[in-house]
């Protein structure tokens, strides 16, 4: 059986205009990698939204997924929170198993 290692998966849904600020913070925190995924549509407290037809970044959301070592997770979340506290966004943290521990 393949050996797996416990890591933290941080998933952030954030408004697109603030994306570069978030990735700057992740880089500063020493996060080794992240994946950015476009988000199509959804519904929040202010009603439904959709990225369809938008020519600008305002109103568009993106999802950033990063897997980090548990020892680093608090520092990453604190840096993320300094930005997210004032922007539209959602952060979730979950436990995941990875095969190559040295990658994160």
């Amino acid at each position: 059986m393949v050996q797996t290692h416990l890591k933290k998966r941080i998933e952030i849904i954030l408004e697109a205009p603030a994306l570069h600020r978030l990735t700057d913070r992740l880089n500063q925190a020493g996060v080794t990698g992240y994946t950015i995924v476009p988000v199509l549509a959804g519904r929040g407290r202010d009603g439904s939204w959709s990225a369809e037809g938008l020519a600008g970044d305002a109103g568009r959301l993106v999802m950033i997924i990063s897997i980090v070592d548990a020892a680093k997770a608090d520092d990453v979340l604190e840096r993320v929170y300094t930005l997210l506290a004032r922007q539209i966004g959602i952060v979730t943290v979950s436990d995941v198993q990875v095969i190559r521990a040295d990658h994160f």
Binding site: E15, P17, A18, R21, G56, A58, Q87, I88
Partner: peptide, 22 residues
């Protein structure tokens, strides 16, 4: 404006409600 300024406002004045100005 509805392209450049809304994006700028999300960074400069994030407390402002985009549902109103957009």
């Amino acid at each position: 404006s509805y392209i450049a300024v809304p994006a700028a406002m999300r960074l400069a004045l994030p407390e402002a409600k985009p549902a109103i100005y957009l």
